[in-house]
């Protein structure tokens, strides 16, 4: 089977997010980058499906040329091909991103045949627009559900399990289909030595994205007002235990 996974390169912030002076972006001068967490799990899901059913798995991203790092990482854990849609500067809006990915998927499918399954992350860690995957699935005429915490393929369908307020829901989508994956569906593996070599050798295919701007436009970022907090130090080491238990009692959770 043929699987496509769409990922996004995102900053890996620690305890605090700082903004650039013009408030147009996160100041990444001292930050590393990573694959958005849900998508890291989508990559692992694709690798497991290909291990079980055979076939090939392509990873795709729309982002700065530096996002090649995330594509190569995905290959190091088992993806077999990589496609970069390079853009300059700021993120594209979700409509434009989806239109560009859709157009490239059509080109890839015209060249090498349809993808049985296209995986996305449930939402990106940074922008959190919750819509790119669904827009792509709709444009390609494929069914999709988001939030997958379990995925299996049998008899021409993808079986999806996800969490809802009232419990678990299960879905059965005929292939070809798309699924949005949530972290927790699996524990992503680390690269092997063989994988690292493959990631160095793989030729990242570059395809120029082209799509019109959509209707959601970022004006600026801002940091929310922080709760003014002064921390009451209850004590040091195990001697603090009585003070902690006094507090628990006061807050009504001891009874």
């Amino acid at each position: 089977m043929r699987i496509l996974v769409c990922v996004k390169r995102v900053p890996a912030p620690g305890a605090r997010i700082n903004l650039t002076a013009d408030a147009q972006a996160i100041d990444t001068a001292h930050l590393g980058f990573t694959t958005s967490p849900h998508e890291e799990c989508a990559v692992e899901a694709a690798v497991q499906l290909v291990e079980g059913h055979g076939g090939e798995a392509t990873v795709l991203t729309l982002g700065p040329v530096e996002a090649e790092e995330q594509l190569r990482y995905a290959v190091s854990v088992g993806m077999t091909a990589a496609v970069l849609l390079p853009i300059d500067g700021a993120d594209w809006d979700p409509q434009r991103t989806a239109a560009a990915i859709t157009e490239v998927v059509r080109r890839l499918e015209a060249a090498d045949g349809p993808f049985d399954l296209i995986l996305f992350g449930n939402e990106s860690a940074d922008a959190g627009n919750f819509q790119v995957g669904i827009r792509v699935a709709h444009a390609l005429g494929r069914p999709m559900v988001n939030g997958a915490k379990g995925i299996a393929i049998s008899e021409g369908a993808v079986h999806v399990r996800r969490e809802a307020d009232a419990g678990q829901e299960t879905y059965e989508l005929p292939l070809p289909a798309a699924v949005g994956v949530k972290e927790g569906i699996n524990l992503p593996r680390y690269p092997t030595m063989k994988g690292r070599l493959a990631s160095k050798r793989v030729e990242v295919e570059r395809m120029e994205p082209d799509a019109e701007t959509g209707g959601l436009r970022m004006v600026r970022l801002q940091r929310p007002a922080e709760r003014a907090s002064t921390t009451v130090i209850l004590g040091r080491g195990p001697d603090a235990a009585p003070a902690v238990v006094d507090l628990l009692d006061e807050l009504g959770v001891l009874a």
Partner: peptide, 13 residues
């Protein structure tokens, strides 16, 4: 954005 640790001002047209 970022689960609530950043806010984005935007226009919706």
């Amino acid at each position: 954005r970022w689960g609530g640790s950043l806010l984005e001002e935007a226009t919706l047209t």
